[in-house]
Design a protein around this nucleic acid. Structure first.
Lengths: 162, 162
DNA sequence: GTCCCTATACTCGGATAGCAAGTGTCCGAGTATAGGCGG
DNA sequence: CCGCCTATACTCGGACACTTGCTATCCGAGTATAGGGAC
C-alpha cells in the first residue's frame, strides 16, 4: 500500500498557501521552485486540490493559487482524498461468492467479516487524518521549523510579491 | 492508496486453512479452485505468507499449506504486512529540505509535523488491524456464512482429503 | 509375508512476460495587466 | 491630463508519452508416496 508522491507535495503546498497574505496568490511554478519538485507534475496535484475546493485558482497575470477556505476548516483527510480519491484502500472482489462453495447470491450478508474488518481499519486511518487540520500543522511548524528556514521562506515570498 | 488483490486472497485463504484438520495440508491449487482465483498468482501470495511464518509449506505428494501457528495468534496486520510489506503508506521525501528555503541539514528535526501526522494515521490503521485475529474472524464467520455454503465448503474439503 | 529400493507424481519455489496505473511533460484556452492612443 | 482600447505576457487546465510496480504465467528443484522386486 503506497500513497503517491503528490500527496506529500499537496500537504506542503497547502501549508505554504496558508501563510500567504489574504488576497495573494502563488503560481504553481513558484510552489514547485519552493519545494524543489517538477512544476508540470505538481500542477496536476494542484488541479486536484482546486477541483476539491481546498484551493482556488486565480487565472491571468499575477494569478496563482490561494486557499479556498480557512486553514482550520481543511483537514489532512481533505487533502489526501483530493489527491488519492475516496475509495477504500481495501478492494473486496467478493471471492466468497465464487468457487465450489458458492450459493445463491441473496443468501449472503452485504459484507463479509473480512471486508468489514478491513473497512474498519480504513475508517480508523481516515478518522486520524480528520483530526488534524492545516491550522494545527501551522501551529506545530511555527515552533519546529528552523528560524533560519522561516526567514529564507519569508524572503522568497516577499520576492514573489515584490 | 490501494491494496493489491492478493491481500484479499491471503485473508480468505488463512481463514480456510484455519478450518483444516490439525495435520492436514491444502495445496495452493485447491485453495485457488475454492476461491475461484488464478492458481499461479495465488501461489506467490502463499509464498509470502510462508516466508512470514503465518503458514508453513508441506512439500511433496499430499503436501500443501497449513497454518504456522494458532489462529488466535495471527492478526490481520500479520497477513497484510506479509503481502504488502511493512513500509508506511506515506512516503516522506523530505522536500522541506529542498528549494530556496533550505538550511543546514543538522538544523532540522528528524520528522516534520506533516510526516508525523501521516505516520500517526498509518499507525492507527495498523493498530486496528492488530486488534482482529483470525480466530475472531472464524467466530464471526461461523454465524454469518450461509449454512448451505458451509456444507458445500466442508464437502469440498472432504473430497480433497478422501 | 516383510523389507527395501526405485520410479513416479505431485508439491512448493523462484525466475520470466504483459499490462495498468503512477509519473512526468507538453501545448492550448483564458484573463488581468501594461502600454499606447485618442479625446 | 484622463479614459478607453488593444496587444501582451502570464496564468491555469486538460491532453499526450514514459517508467515503475502490480498482475499473471511458466518451468525447474525437491519430497512423500506407491508399486515392484528381492529375501
Amino acid at each position: 500500500m503506497r500513497l503517491g508522491e503528490p500527496v506529500e507535495w499537496a500537504l506542503h503546498c497547502t501549508t505554504v498557501l496558508a501563510l500567504l497574505p489574504a488576497d495573494g496568490a502563488l503560481p504553481a511554478s513558484k510552489l514547485a521552485e519552493f519545494h524543489g519538485v517538477p512544476a508540470a507534475y505538481l500542477a496536476k496535484a494542484l488541479q486536484s486540490l482546486s477541483r476539491a475546493g481546498i484551493v482556488e485558482s486565480v487565472p491571468g497575470r499575477n494569478g496563482g493559487y490561494r486557499l479556498g477556505r480557512p486553514p482550520a476548516e481543511i483537514t489532512l483527510l481533505d487533502v489526501v482524498e483530493a489527491i488519492e480519491g475516496q475509495e477504500s484502500s481495501f478492494r473486496c472482489t467478493e471471492i466468497r461468492k465464487r468457487g465450489p462453495a458458492r450459493v445463491s447470491p441473496r443468501l449472503y450478508l452485504p459484507v463479509c467479516a473480512i471486508a468489514d474488518a478491513m473497512y474498519r481499519a480504513d475508517e480508523a486511518w481516515r478518522a486520524e487524518l480528520r483530526q488534524t487540520t492545516v491550522a494545527d500543522l501551522l501551529q506545530q511548524l511555527a515552533t519546529s521549523v528552523p528560524a533560519e528556514a522561516v526567514m529564507k521562506g519569508a524572503a522568497f515570498l516577499q520576492e514573489v510579491f515584490r
